[in-house]
Design a protein around this nucleic acid. Structure first.
Lengths: 112, 112
DNA sequence: CAAATATACCTAAAACTCTTAGGTATCAAA
DNA sequence: TTTGATACCTAAGAGTTTTAGGTATATTTG
């Protein structure tokens, strides 16, 4: 099918945008959501996700709150104000990237 | 403006597609072409380009022919048959990536 | 004409991101 | 009771790009 690898930087954009859409989510939920939305075409590995979440938190773009569900801890992540700003920036970067690729490749890359 | 970084894997796709469009090009020419086409928004650094060209050659996707211009050597690169096939694959991967991102981000990323 | 800029190739260290391959533990279903 | 799902995590390695050099010829500019 396709190389199931992400493009550089797209993971952070995915995380930030999902949190913008859903207010708060926990890590495992993000992996399942992406899997579901792309019909299992895109798999976010946990080895990539958790370090990315920790870095976004360290950069002040996310905050965490731990919630006990049954006997297990869930870590819910939420956008900070900086996080909301950065989400807009990342989306603009992605749009710029696609526009640049269209210029170079001389091709419409996205349908409609 | 924007983070002037490429997205992972996009450099190879750019190289291959430019060679498909222009039959043969040399390294420096590729950097200038991309700069010109994107109004200096996207800069291909030589530190990324030359190793990428060597790898594509090693993988059998490109062939080289050296041409003396004045007193300097230019290395012209050209797609092999495998290279032509791989170019189509890379373009399809990029289109798939954009479609997946549109699904996840719930946004039209490319105009038209 | 000298010095700066452009052309044209190159490499190596470091940074960064993601994959692979583990690990722990709880909970539900077979 | 054992498998699979849920839920977190880390570390080694692979791969790509940036940064920061290096060499040399050709052209432009002050």
């Amino acid at each position: 099918m396709k190389s199931n690898s992400l493009f550089k930087g797209s993971l952070n954009t995915i995380i930030l945008t999902l949190l913008k859409q859903n207010d708060r989510m926990y890590g495992y939920e993000i992996t399942q959501k992406v899997k579901e939305m792309t019909s299992s075409d895109l798999i976010i590995t946990e080895g990539a996700l958790y370090p990315a979440l920790h870095k976004l938190e360290g950069d002040g773009l996310l905050t965490v709150s731990i919630e006990k569900v049954g006997n297990r801890n869930r870590k819910y992540y939420q956008l900070t104000e900086n996080g909301k700003t950065e989400t807009v920036n990342r989306l603009n970067d992605l749009k710029d990237f696609i526009e640049q690729m269209q210029l170079i490749l001389n091709t419409k890359l996205a349908t409609q």
